Simulated scan of single mutants.
Amino acid sequence: MEQNIFDSGLKKIGLVAINGDSGGVLGTDSYSPYIKIVYLPGGYSLTVDFSSYRTTGPTLFFVSPNQVLNITGTGSAPGSMIFYNRDFYCIQIHDEEVACDGLLFNNIYNMPMTTLTPEEGSFIDYLYAQIGDEFIHRDSSHEEMIRTYLKQLFIRSVRLWKRQHLEQEAAGQSSDIESFRKFTQLVEAHYKEKHNVADYAALLSMAPKTITHRFKRLSLPQPNEVIKNRIVLEAKRLLAHTQMSSKEIAYELGYEDPAYFSRLFLLKAGETPSGFRAKFLS
Results as ranks from 00 to 15, higher is better:
residue 110 N to M: 09
residue 111 M to T: 13
residue 103 L to F: 07
residue 96 E to P: 13
residue 109 Y to V: 14
residue 88 F to E: 01
residue 143 E to I: 02
residue 118 P to Q: 04
residue 96 E to R: 13
residue 134 E to S: 04
residue 152 Q to M: 12
residue 111 M to E: 12
residue 121 G to A: 07
residue 140 S to F: 06
residue 109 Y to Q: 14
residue 94 H to W: 09
residue 101 D to E: 10
residue 144 E to C: 08
residue 145 M to T: 08
residue 108 I to N: 12
residue 111 M to Y: 13
residue 122 S to H: 15
residue 98 V to F: 03
residue 133 D to G: 11
residue 125 D to I: 04
residue 135 F to I: 03
residue 97 E to D: 09
residue 127 L to W: 09
residue 125 D to K: 08
residue 108 I to K: 15
residue 94 H to K: 12
residue 147 R to L: 10
residue 150 L to Q: 05
residue 97 E to Q: 13
residue 120 E to R: 15
residue 105 F to I: 03
residue 131 I to C: 00
residue 115 T to D: 08
residue 111 M to I: 12
residue 134 E to R: 03
residue 150 L to C: 00
residue 122 S to K: 15
residue 126 Y to F: 10
residue 130 Q to F: 10
residue 131 I to F: 06
residue 105 F to C: 04
residue 113 M to W: 09
residue 90 C to G: 10
residue 140 S to G: 06
residue 100 C to K: 03
residue 125 D to H: 03
residue 90 C to S: 08
residue 92 Q to W: 09
residue 105 F to V: 03
residue 111 M to G: 05
residue 141 S to G: 11
residue 147 R to Q: 13
residue 116 L to E: 00
residue 107 N to T: 06
residue 97 E to K: 11
residue 132 G to R: 09
residue 114 T to L: 01
residue 121 G to F: 02
residue 96 E to L: 15
residue 131 I to R: 13
residue 129 A to S: 09
residue 149 Y to L: 01
residue 114 T to A: 06
residue 145 M to L: 12
residue 141 S to D: 07
residue 134 E to D: 01
residue 118 P to C: 03
residue 122 S to Q: 14
residue 115 T to R: 15
residue 152 Q to D: 05
residue 113 M to L: 11
residue 117 T to L: 01
residue 104 L to P: 05
residue 110 N to E: 10
residue 114 T to W: 00
residue 148 T to A: 12
residue 106 N to W: 13
residue 115 T to N: 08
residue 119 E to N: 12
residue 151 K to Q: 09
residue 117 T to M: 01
residue 147 R to C: 05
residue 149 Y to F: 05
residue 117 T to K: 06
residue 149 Y to D: 09
residue 137 H to I: 06
residue 138 R to V: 07
residue 115 T to S: 14
residue 125 D to G: 03
residue 149 Y to Q: 11
residue 143 E to W: 04
residue 102 G to L: 08
residue 107 N to P: 05
residue 148 T to L: 11
residue 88 F to K: 00
residue 104 L to G: 00
residue 141 S to Q: 09
residue 150 L to A: 00
residue 152 Q to K: 10
residue 143 E to Q: 07
residue 104 L to Y: 02
residue 89 Y to P: 00
residue 128 Y to H: 02
residue 105 F to M: 08
residue 117 T to W: 01
residue 128 Y to W: 03
residue 139 D to W: 06
residue 137 H to W: 07
residue 149 Y to I: 01
residue 132 G to L: 07
residue 121 G to W: 06
residue 146 I to F: 02
residue 108 I to V: 14
residue 136 I to T: 08
residue 116 L to G: 02
residue 119 E to W: 14
residue 142 H to S: 15
residue 102 G to E: 03
residue 91 I to W: 04
residue 132 G to P: 02
residue 94 H to D: 12
residue 141 S to F: 15
residue 122 S to M: 11
residue 111 M to S: 14
residue 103 L to V: 11
residue 151 K to F: 05
residue 107 N to R: 12
residue 117 T to Q: 04
residue 133 D to Y: 14
residue 120 E to N: 11
residue 139 D to H: 13
residue 125 D to V: 08
residue 122 S to E: 13
residue 150 L to F: 05
residue 115 T to P: 01
residue 138 R to F: 02
residue 126 Y to G: 02
residue 109 Y to L: 12
residue 152 Q to F: 08
residue 149 Y to W: 10
residue 106 N to R: 14
residue 132 G to N: 12
residue 109 Y to A: 09
residue 127 L to D: 11
residue 143 E to R: 14
residue 151 K to P: 01
residue 135 F to M: 03
residue 113 M to A: 12
residue 152 Q to N: 09
residue 121 G to N: 04
residue 104 L to K: 05
residue 88 F to T: 00
